[in-house]
Every structure is written in C-alpha cells, then in structure tokens.
Simulated assay, not measured.
Amino acid sequence: MVRKRAQKLGDLERAVLEVLWGLSPLQRATVRDVHTALSADRAIAYTTVMTVLERLARKDLVDQHRDGRAYSYRAAATRGEMTAEMMRATLDDFGSGDSPAALVAFVEDATAAEVAALREALARLGR
C-alpha cells in the first residue's frame, strides 16, 4: 500500500514499526505485544507505546483494528514500500528535473546485491 506522502519518523516510531514488520503480513499485534517486544531492549511505559501506535495510525502508517475493548495493529505498508515512498518524496522535494541524476548517483553507490536486485526488477518491468 502506498502512502499519500512519506512521513519522517522518530526513533521510537521506527522501533514500533520494526516490531510490526517482524510479524507475518496478516498478523496483528496489541499494545501489550509491542510493549513486551520493545521493553526487552529499553525502559518504556505501556502508555508511551499506546500513544506512538495511535500517532502512527493517525499518520496512516499502521492499520488500527478494534478488537473488543482493545485495539490491534499491523503495519500499513511493508518496509520496502515505505522506503520507496520516502525515496519518491525526497526526489519530489528536490525537484523532478534532477531525479534521473539522483537515481544514477544512488545506483553508483549501490552494492552488487542492490544492483542485481535493480536489474531483476527492471527486467520484470520490461516484460
């Protein structure tokens, strides 16, 4: 799912999304699930996790589903989809006239695995 506009994410928002991206695509997590995962590495309040999930839902970055009295969540887009949208937004912010040059500069710094993935994707698009 492509977002209307890429969002800048804070460290905690990114950490919450990392937990959600670690789930299977159809699986949902409760605030408690996310809190348990995050609190393994940091001291964090349950209410803070709840606030971050609500904020991400308002930004349309997570899907929020009412499940009885509680909510469950899942990422609205894959990590790859969100990264692509942020790249598109960055290219738009700097003007479309320089997009080809920016893409070339990006590819020049890409690893061999990244170049191979780009070639494979371009080949699929060309079919």
Rank of each mutant, 00 (worst) to 15 (best):
L53S: 07
R58W: 13
T51D: 12
A40V: 11
Y71G: 03
Q64N: 03
H65I: 13
A40Q: 15
D41H: 11
R74K: 02
K59T: 10
V52Y: 05
M82I: 00
T51K: 05
R66S: 11
H65E: 14
V52E: 09
G80M: 04
D41F: 11
A70F: 07
R55G: 01
V62F: 01
L56F: 05
Y46W: 14
E54W: 04
S39M: 10
V49L: 03
V49K: 01
R79G: 06
L61Y: 09
T51Q: 00
M82D: 07
T48G: 08
R55H: 05
V49M: 08
A57F: 12
Q64I: 12
T51F: 02
M82E: 13
Y46H: 03
D63Q: 14
A76K: 05
L53P: 01
L38M: 01
E54Q: 12
V52N: 03
L61P: 04
A37Q: 13
A77P: 04
A40L: 02
I44T: 00
S39G: 01
G68P: 09
H65R: 15
D41W: 07
E54G: 00
S39F: 02
R66W: 04
R58G: 11
L61Q: 06
K59C: 13
A45L: 10
E81D: 09
T83P: 09
A70D: 07
E54D: 03
R58L: 15
D60T: 08
E54T: 01
V49H: 00
A70V: 13
R74Y: 04
M82V: 14
R42Y: 07
R42T: 10
G68L: 11
K59Y: 04
L38I: 06
A75L: 12
R42M: 15
R79M: 15
A37I: 03
R55M: 08
Q64F: 01
A70S: 15
D63I: 09
D60N: 13
L56E: 00
A70G: 14
R79Y: 04
R55D: 02
T47I: 13
D60Y: 12
T48V: 07
S39K: 12
G80A: 15
S39Y: 00
T78M: 05
T48L: 02
Q64P: 04
A40M: 06
M82L: 05
A45M: 08
E54C: 00
M50I: 00
Q64L: 10
R42K: 12
S72E: 15
A77E: 09
R69G: 00
Y46F: 14
D41C: 10
S39V: 09
D67F: 14
R58H: 11
V49E: 06
G68M: 07
R42E: 09
T78Q: 07
A76M: 12
